[in-house]
Design a binder for these strands. Structure first.
Lengths: 199, 199, 199, 199
DNA sequence: ACCAGCGGGACATCCCGTTGCT
DNA sequence: AGCAACGGGATGTCCCGCTGGT
């Protein structure tokens, strides 16, 4: 019985722990989308409705929390880029698929969009992983002779640059319903890719 | 004689004032390009070699200094976009000229580039003026039937997005010597403009 | 059990909190009685033996502390003007009772006296409440036909003025043992009240 | 001629000096009447329209300025208590004359009134001189057997207390036209003096 | 006699990370 | 797992008094 109690208690504890952690992460994400102030622990714990000690029980500090936020974002990529993407015939199609997925996600989830923009400023963050994937697709596309731009880094900057700024625009203005399609066509023209038949 | 005294005194004061003010502004600009997030008064006055009181004699506070930095950047635009730009035949040519000027300036002056990137985050700052100019050129180009993209805001986002990200890339990597030309061609393709004959 | 935990925790927290809060308030009150003009946070926390952060944990700032000090003073009035004052037969007797109580309290507790004098400068503070009570008694006395002075505000100024200055005098000089009685008689003569039979 | 020049210049200089000094004093007095802030040199020089160096040319510092302000106030007493006061027959009449003069001055010159109130907090200031004069009159009145109150200090506190508070009241409220007369009668009753036949 | 500019330091405020308790 | 309270320190702001110049 003591054993059962301990096990149940542990399970409950784990669940509670996860819930509080999520509360803190959510509060931090919420605050990151608001205008000016640098994220402060005090603000986070107040927004999350927990005590300071609780924050430091779950995270080492602000850096740790930022890393955790990044991991949360990273996990969302798996949802966006499901394995069936790999079945696509060529690199340009994969790139188009990913670009569209990311843009639609950003438009439908402004909070996620703001976090992505915030994170784009740190080249050492998880944005590196995205860029690496993008570079692979672009390198393949260049090998397949499908691009005018021959410099992989320049091509990546073009794709990322358009994505970031279009997302910023979508946060500030009402967006046309076909914005993702328009933006994608502009990207493909920019890197000099033949238009994909179907998106 | 009193008049001369006042005039001379003012002139001397202005010279001294301008020198110290410039020192502070320069130090602040220098610090803005370095990693850490927040510009602090202590760091600025230490870098500028002046006392805190001197900082507050010249500026109301950090906000005022930011505004002054913005004004300094704004003044640099006049140097880049001289009046002879207006002699260019069509809107696409003017846009190409401005894009190339800005990109070459960013590559040759990394500090200026970093300031521009920092400032791009604040949509209410002087970046608005640049965007307004850009929008004018794009609207004209669309009227002249020279663009595929028909949405001025989207076209502006594309141009600015490529510019910002290419500049970021140039700060982190060695850039090819023909980067401005390549980037310009990508921009023109992206918005669907006919290539200009001469750059 | 969770309930008990929360209750006990709150009780313990309250006790600790109240102790430290009282320390800070006491230190601030002590400092207010000393010469220099301005109450500073540094001086308060040093006198109270706590850290600056602790001060700002308990109070929003200096203004908040001033308000708290005022509330402390206000609470002391309840001790002075107990409900049995209301049993007194007429307004002049009630006024005499309150005046004497306040004056004896001031003489026996110089720190309290200094705080009262300090606070008298702010007409918007809690001194307003005292004045309101005094005005009530005086208005009643005038209605009962017991005063020569017919203007309530003037009468209040006379009573308060004598009280404040006599208290100031008692802080600077040795006071005669029958000072409260003498002062009270002067006040009653000033407003033109018949002498009360018993004080 | 050089001599004449020097003399004239000195005369002009003295005049200018006096004018600037007066400007500073006036600005300081003006600021003292405004609500909360402690008098600061910066505020004074800005209000006076002179430079900081000028302030320190005329005054040693804030303490010196306060002393000068006190002297200015003191000088105003000579205007109020002209020598013909000494011709009055008895001490009570002299006291009544002075009280009325001071009160009428305060009502007609609120700035002067505020300065007096401010200064009353410092027992070492020029208020001491006034109190000394008052004590003389009161002591004489007691000797002449004209007062009920036998303690000179207490009598002085009563007179000063009523004066200060009535003046405070006149600054905050509209005052009845016969306020000085009413207040004087209250004072005389308070100290137990026979009413003077003529004021 | 007056001024512009500056150095140095005091102060209020904010915020991070720790501690002891449950 | 969570909380209330606290210590310590960094930062923005203000302001005094001095300096060199005319």
């Amino acid at each position: 019985m003591a054993k059962i109690d301990a096990a149940r208690r542990a399970a409950i504890g784990r669940a509670k722990r996860a819930r509080t952690r999520a509360q803190i992460l959510e509060a931090a994400a919420m605050l990151l989308t608001e205008r000016p102030v640098a994220l402060t622990v005090d603000a986070i714990v107040q927004a999350a409705g927990v005590a300071k000690g609780t924050f430091y029980y779950h995270f080492q500090g602000l850096d740790d929390l930022s890393a955790a936020l990044g991991a949360t974002l990273g996990a969302s990529f798996d949802d966006l880029l499901t394995s069936d993407r790999l079945d696509l015939p060529d690199a340009v199609a994969r790139l188009s698929f990913a670009f569209t997925q990311f843009l639609e996600k950003a438009i439908s989830d402004p909070l996620w969009a703001r976090l992505m923009i915030q994170s784009s400023k740190d080249p050492a963050g998880f944005a590196r992983g995205i860029r690496a994937h993008l570079r692979d697709d672009l390198a393949n596309a260049i090998e397949e002779g499908g691009l005018i731009v021959q410099d992989v880094e320049l091509a990546a900057d073009i794709v990322i640059g358009i994505w970031l700024q279009v997302v910023r625009g979508s946060l500030e203005r009402r967006t046309a319903s076909d914005l993702p399609a328009q933006a994608l066509r502009a990207v493909l023209r920019a890197v000099g890719a033949a238009q994909p038949r179907a998106e």
